[in-house]
Design a protein around this nucleic acid. Structure first.
Lengths: 213, 213
DNA sequence: GTCTATACACAGATAGAC
DNA sequence: GTCTATCTGTGTATAGAC
């Protein structure tokens, strides 16, 4: 159950018609923009790409998001919010630290394997020098939120004895986040998503099996 | 000594004049292009940026590299070659597996902290869908070369008893590579390179201290 | 090899009709 | 809200003089 946890902001490219419960145009734009950032990067798409994908003209996008910086800021904040929501749901779905970390990794895996995308903020971090300040701030906030969530989960795992190897929750939180981000990147660059699975499995093995010293 | 190992392809922005032993124009262009890819991404710079940095006109770049795809391919291949050279030198500088892995991590750290850049192929992996096929191939080759080198180093460490925790060299090779790539990315996105150090320290601690089961 | 000049497509963005 | 039309800047790339 946890294994199949999905981020609740999957792009519904399969339902472009009116069968959806009337998703607003702004939401539609943000969905497409999110997909484009995650697959092509901030500098790898244009308003015209978004417009073509949803069947309007690029000028219309400016009505909803005056500048690309506005769109970038909003799409990143939305991604962070959706992620935070998924993490909260994950927290409430189980008390098991192992299941929580598994579920956490599964969020990344779903993005990579099922959506064929990367973590949005991982991509943006790679081109952070070229994005507006508003976007930079959102990227930093995302990573901080991720580590804080992981730290609290790890601390709970230490408290209930599930985790023996972790002395510094901050260190392990950053390690988990970095390994998964890097695993996605290497998998993408290698064209083989199995690389991500190797990293994820090894990471959890080490975290839960290592002997405290 | 190993700690301060440097990649031998640092951009010599400090020496733009003729005091250098006559670096060719093509090399100069490649140096600037490398810096730009590592800091802004493939889609985050233009021929004009390179031209401005070395004091010529963008049209002149086309004489050396007809298309941006040509430049992208060559700069990526050059990066891979220089990296491979550094890895070979590292291999010959010590027999200690620990020192080798430390030295390996130091290559990434130097890039991040002293050069204020990311791994070129890490950046390119994030926008791989937008780069020419030639570049894609080079990126994949880079990651494969990295894992192969790490595997051989790990195997030597197993053979001489330095490493006890590693049963599958492929798994650990990809884990090390991914952790360092991700650590760079998270550090960059967070604006705090200490995050990289936490990941690197934890990674080596786990690899060399973990108990075999 | 590097230049000027230029072509051409596309980028983000705005004005005003509907 | 979306359109057409348009502006202005920038992108890659080429031609031909020097």
């Amino acid at each position: 159950m946890i294994e199949t946890a999905k981020l609740p902001f999957t792009l519904d490219t399969s339902m472009p018609d009116s069968s959806n419960p009337k998703k607003s145009k702004s939401e539609e734009i943000l969905s497409v923009a999110q997909d484009l950032v995650q697959t092509k990067g901030y500098n790898g798409f244009s308003y015209r790409d978004i417009a073509a994908a949803i069947g309007i003209k690029s000028a219309s996008i400016h009505y909803h998001f005056p500048t690309k910086g506005d769109l970038g800021r909003d799409v990143t904040a939305r991604y962070s919010d959706a992620f935070a929501q998924a993490l909260q749901a994950l927290l409430e779905s189980t008390d098991s630290t192992h299941e929580r970390i598994e579920g956490y990794a599964a969020l990344f895996r779903t993005t990579l394997v099922e959506q064929n995308r990367l973590c949005m903020c991982g991509v943006l971090a790679g081109e952070v020098e070229t994005v507006p300040d508003d976007v930079k701030v959102e990227v930093a906030r995302f990573f901080e939120a991720q580590t804080l969530w992981l730290e609290s989960v790890l601390q709970a795992g230490i408290d209930n004895g599930e985790i023996l190897s972790c002395k510094d929750t901050k260190t392990w939180a950053v390690t988990i986040l970095s390994s998964l981000e890097g695993g996605m990147l290497v998998a993408r660059g290698s064209g083989d998503s199995k690389h991500f699975d190797l990293v994820k499995e090894n990471l959890l093995k080490v975290l839960f099996e290592a002997t405290p010293q």
